[in-house]
Write a protein that binds this DNA or RNA. Structure first.
Length: 923
RNA sequence: GCCUCCGUAGCUCAGGGGUAGAGCGCUCCCUUGGUAAGGGCGAGGUCAUGAGUUCAAAUCUCAUCGGAGGCUCCA
């Protein structure tokens, strides 16, 4: 017998050989079609985890498949290496961010090599290197010159924990998305990117093959709404209050106004009598977190300012209130309240006894809407009433100008100068400055009030290395005088760039990571762009994925792709649309979750103290092995908090407090045990160190080999969904690869083979090729591998029955290894070499699907009686309708049910793509 | 509350108007000189529930129940 499959021996060998022979070097070749496959670059946090493997290895398999199909494939990798964790490591462990980052990065790069992926490491880009961030700075300057980057004052999110401002996209439910700590609103002067200028274009996903949820999330985030803007003047003094409304047709129903408590005019317009209560309310809301404020079904609180506004459409004097249900961050931070037709305003009016007026009368109701009878605001269609000249206008369900009443009112507002059509976005400009050290410097200098960009020839502004990390929480740059002090009057910007800016263009840097004349080489860009397939997590939907689209569009409008466009033309390719979007196809992988784990079955002895037991002895035993007469607490350890055990038996939880010096016996763990070593029940949930359900890929590779781990990850999950880890299932892919190994190293059989079996295995091979192709195309890696297993099973059975001859064996094994190559690159390469084929299997062509060879010849004609299958008759694959019906009617089943009568109908269903032909006899 | 996706074998998932499928797991048998293994045989499903359309529904339609994700005082 031949030797066994020993993954480690071959994997390291081939990884070295691939590297030495530069097998994965990708270079521009205008004679070949290109394919730019990209997976989101990792942050160098320390160790590669199973999620990285899950994200990267299936993408690698697909990239390899594309390469074998004849594409010139670019599949680069790099690191998103700026960010707070490095700085926190510096503060807490006194390691410089450079050192911490580089150590992690080198470690992760080594771990990534063990994947056997086809990354072209010669194109690696690392965002924290001066060679990289020079161009992040350079882009910032170009943006500044064209008014895309600007310094402005705005209410921003300040994180006390992180001591920096954050972009809106990084704040979820009022909390920082990374640490989950609350943020506060602060008025600050910061650097912004004018992403709102691109809001409408970003809403257009034409030509993008992206997951629907991502498009929806971006659309929601941008939050476009059409309506009108109008100014309400105060009755006393001249303080116009800007409002935005999507319902200008209800302007005549405005019976009061509401300002957000943070609104700048609150202080100005409040009357002395109301001053105390207004101040009190403003103070209260300032203390509320965003979360509290956004709770549903909250009581509508608010206070009167004492001031009045004049409704511009009917000169009515209406009171101005402040209330926390109006958000300073949305629209103008002030609203006209129309309680008759807006539920929130209705609730507020009811709570504070404010007048309600009907200005839209539902047309189809027999009884007219009256304020007295209303129990809720009416927001349906109808006819405008109580609205002077606009009365009678039809207000439909439609939004914006599509609604005739709204269109008419907008026209009237514009004609009379009382207001204008307006579009409001939820999206705000992108706040890109951070009060942190470990980020790309912003290349700006302040001279008094004047802002002076650093000249291009002085880029990059280097991050100083000799900085002190003081526990003040402040960026070391703010007290590093050599850095910020340019001269006596000029001071350098000490804020740094949001790391999302660096990752907004990394797909361009891969094109030419060593280029020092430009951020990217035009010729390379012309050939490779855009990214054809982008894979990564869905959590970046409104951050990275929105930012990078914005970035691409800005670069295009600034003419930064002009050279690339010219190069495309030179090479006879159409540049139309090539630089509008960064990534054509986007797919999100799901998440590998921690598997479910049974808790230890424990026997606790001790004495009862009130409701719970105070235990002096806890023993772990085999499941349900309770000694007769045991009178303590026993059951599964469901949960543990410190030394309190939650022991569950038959759905009842009992609490056991374990004494400090109690005896803990865990048979599987030798030596003296303690309460912390008890294993509690684990639900299926995200992997995290604190939950103790993390899977270490290095250990898996050590145990099973990289190929098995790759295949397990592709096979055991629906890639786009993810799911719970179950190491037991790794035996499937392991057995498969072992079998393939055995089949190949056993060599060609000596038996002569049987023609029909050989024809059959050839047919099965081609049927499998079709399924595998579809699986890879659709990112259904699991079905592609299941199909390969299935084919292996057929082949194995045929070989065992000695029905395959030597010639057929060679004809089958060769494509089998090529089909295997993208999934398990090492074993495929090893077996390929052992059979004496030319290096490398990865540069071979992908087996072509031959429909003729895949075609079945004999099939079963299914005879159905009233839709129920009753009998099968073997027939030719392309049996004609007449013959099929005749055969069916002559079948025993048909004769039995017809018993001499004529059938009502006989319906012939020809077999197509693999299904058998059928005849349904209706009796 | 709204939007999107999803309920198929014990598990993970394919399929999808026309005979209910794969891998793993499981039962039983064989092997014990491939051995933290190998081989063989087999069992397992009212395709979430209810109604409708159809000669025929797991598949299409509607409703209900259950799950996952996203949005949510958006003026």
């Amino acid at each position: 017998m031949s030797e066994n499959y020993q993954p480690h021996a071959i994997e390291v060998k081939w990884q070295q050989k691939w590297e030495d022979s530069r097998l994965y070097r990708s270079q521009v070749d205008w004679d070949k079609p290109k394919h730019y496959a990209l997976t989101m670059l990792p942050y160098p946090s320390g160790d590669l985890h199973i999620g990285h493997w899950f994200a990267m290895t299936p993408s690698d398999a697909r990239a390899r498949w594309m390469r074998m199909k004849g594409y010139n494939v670019l599949f680069p990798m790099g690191f998103d290496a700026f960010g707070l964790p490095a700085e926190q490591a510096a503060i807490s462990r006194n390691i410089h961010p450079w050192k911490w980052t580089y150590a992690n990065l080198e470690r992760m790069r080594e771990q990534m090599r063990s994947m056997g992926a086809m990354f072209d490491w010669e194109r690696e880009a690392i965002s924290c290197t001066p060679e990289y961030y020079k161009w992040s700075e350079w882009f910032f300057k170009r943006f500044y010159e064209h008014g895309i980057a600007y310094r402005g004052s705005a209410l921003v999110n300040w994180s006390e924990t992180l001591q920096t401002v954050l972009a809106n996209e990084q704040v979820i439910d009022g909390k920082d998305e990374r640490t989950g700590q609350p943020v506060v609103h602060k008025m600050m002067e910061q650097w912004f990117f004018r992403i709102t200028k691109y809001a409408d274009e970003l809403l257009n996903f034409e030509g993008l093959d992206w997951p629907e949820p991502i498009k929806i999330m971006q659309t929601n985030w941008i939050g476009r709404s059409e309506g009108a803007r109008a100014a309400f003047h105060t009755a006393v003094g001249n303080h116009p209050i800007e409002i935005f409304t999507t319902r200008p047709d209800t302007l005549w129903g405005a019976t009061f106004m509401v300002l957000a408590p943070e609104h700048a005019l609150v202080d100005v317009i409040t009357t002395p009598e109301q001053r105390a209560s207004v101040d009190e309310y403003v103070k209260e809301t300032a203390l509320e977190t965003e979360i509290e404020r956004m709770l549903e079904h909250r009581e509508k609180t608010g206070v009167f300012t004492g001031a009045y506004a004049i409704n511009p459409v009917n000169d009515e004097k209406i009171p101005i209130w402040i209330a926390d249900y109006v958000m300073i961050t949305y629209g103008a931070g002030a609203i006209m309240a129309v309680p008759g037709h807006d539920q929130r305003d209705f609730e507020f009016a009811k709570a504070h006894d404010l007048p309600i007026r009907v200005v839209i009368q539902p047309g189809d109701m027999t009884e007219a809407l009256t304020v007295e009878a209303m129990s809720a605001a009416y927001d349906g269609p109808g006819v405008m009433v109580n609205s002077d000249a606009m009365d009678g206008s039809l207000s439909s369900d439609a939004k914006g100008r599509k609604n005739p009443a709204i269109a008419r009112v907008i026209d009237w507002l514009e004609a009379t100068g009382k207001g204008e059509e307006a579009i409001n976005y939820r999206l705000h400009d992108w706040l890109i400055s951070r009060q942190r050290y470990w980020g790309g410097p912003i290349p700006m200098i302040y001279d008094g009030d004047e802002i002076i960009p650093v000249p291009d020839e002085d880029l990059p502004v280097l991050l100083p290395e000799d900085v002190d990390f003081m526990p003040t929480g402040r960026s070391p740059l703010t007290y590093h005088e050599p850095f910020f002090k340019v001269d006596e009057t000029r001071r350098r910007e000490t804020d740094t760039l949001d790391t999302f800016m660096c990752s907004s263009w990394y797909q361009l840097r891969y094109l030419s990571p060593d280029c020092d004349a430009a951020p990217f080489d035009a010729e390379e860009a012309a050939y490779w762009l855009p990214v054809d397939v982008y894979t990564g997590g869905a959590e970046h939907a409104v951050m990275h994925l929105l930012y990078t689209r914005f970035f691409t569009k800005v670069l295009r409008d600034l003419g930064l792709y002009d050279d690339a466009v010219a190069a495309m033309r030179r090479h006879g390719r159409d540049p139309e649309g090539a630089f509008d979007e960064p990534m054509t196809i986007l797919r999100n992988q799901g998440q590998v979750l921690g598997g479910e784990r049974q808790g230890d079955f424990v026997l606790c002895s001790g004495r009862a103290v009130g409701e719970r037991m105070l235990a002096h002895r806890v023993e772990v035993v085999d499941w349900n092995q309770v000694p007769p007469g045991f009178d303590g607490v026993f059951g599964e350890l469901a949960h543990r908090t410190e030394d309190v055990l939650h022991v569950e038996m038959a759905g009842i939880t009992q609490f056991v407090k374990v004494e400090r010096d109690a005896e803990v016996i865990i048979p599987d763990i030798p030596g003296k045990n303690n309460v912390n070593q008890l294993r509690h029940h684990l639900e299926i949930q995200r992997m995290s160190k604190s939950k103790g359900n993390v899977v270490n890929p290095d250990e898996l590779v050590e145990k099973y080999g990289a190929d098995v781990v790759r295949c397990y990850l592709m096979f055991n999950f629906d890639w786009q969904k993810g799911g719970p880890w179950n190491e037991n299932n790794i035996k499937g892919p392991q057995g498969w690869l072992h079998d393939v190994w055995d089949i190949v190293v056993a060599g060609a059989p000596t038996s002569p083979g049987a023609a029909d079996a050989e024809r059959d295995i050839e047919r099965k091979l081609h049927q499998s090729i079709a399924v595998i192709n579809r699986g890879l195309e659709d990112f259904s890696f699991n079905t592609a591998i299941a199909e390969q297993m299935k084919f292996k099973n057929y082949l194995k059975a045929a070989l065992r029955e000695e029905k395959i001859g030597a010639r057929c064996w060679w004809e089958i094994i060769n494509p089998t290894l090529r089909l295997l190559a993208p999934f398990a690159p090492h074993i495929a390469e090893e077996l390929w070499a052992r059979l004496g084929f030319d290096y490398s299997v990865h540069t071979q062509s992908w087996p072509a699907y031959d429909a003729e060879k895949a075609r079945e010849e004999q099939v079963d004609l299914v005879v159905m009686i009233n839709g129920k299958p009753r009998e099968t008759i073997p027939v030719d694959v392309d049996i004609a309708k007449e013959l099929a019906v005749t055969l069916a009617l002559e079948s025993a089943a048909a004769k039995r049910s017809l018993s001499g009568e004529a059938p009502k109908r006989a319906i012939f269903i020809p077999g197509r793509n693999g299904t058998d032909p059928k005849v349904n006899v209706v009796v």
